[in-house]
Design a protein around this nucleic acid. Structure first.
Length: 102
DNA sequence: CGGTTGACAGCCT
DNA sequence: AAGGCTGCCAACC
């Protein structure tokens, strides 16, 4: 295999498949990527996303349905999610309602 | 090539 | 139930 042998590439493809208006968790992406214990690395990959990427990285949140970013990045992600019709309750997203498992 | 880093998740208090 | 501590593992330096 040559296209999905990189963890980073697999993460890209998985996140690109998240339906608009839905979200998933770092842990879920890690599992789908074949590394169940690499949730933290998923964040590491997104942190260095190439500028101009169209990847819907904002559709990835932590297991509590909360945004793990801070400051401006936090506001940017929240705005992107609200724009897709995702509702925040108590600062959290209802994963049972918006969660995507693949 | 080995040590450090950190967009997390689980387990334990 | 809520917060704190520890393990994990790919990317970086």
């Amino acid at each position: 295999m040559s296209e999905i042998d990189n963890f980073r590439q697999r993460v890209f493809h998985i996140i690109a498949a998240i339906p608009l208006g839905q979200v998933t968790t770092y842990g879920a992406v890690a599992r789908m990527a074949g590394s169940p214990r690499a949730a933290r690395q998923v964040g590491g990959v997104l942190k260095k996303l190439p500028p101009g990427s169209t990847l819907p990285w904002h559709r990835v949140v932590n297991r509590h349905g909360e945004i793990s970013l801070q400051g401006e990045d936090f506001k940017r992600q929240r705005q992107a999610l609200l724009a897709e019709g995702i509702i925040f309750a108590q600062g959290k997203i209802d994963l049972l309602k918006y969660g995507w498992q693949g």
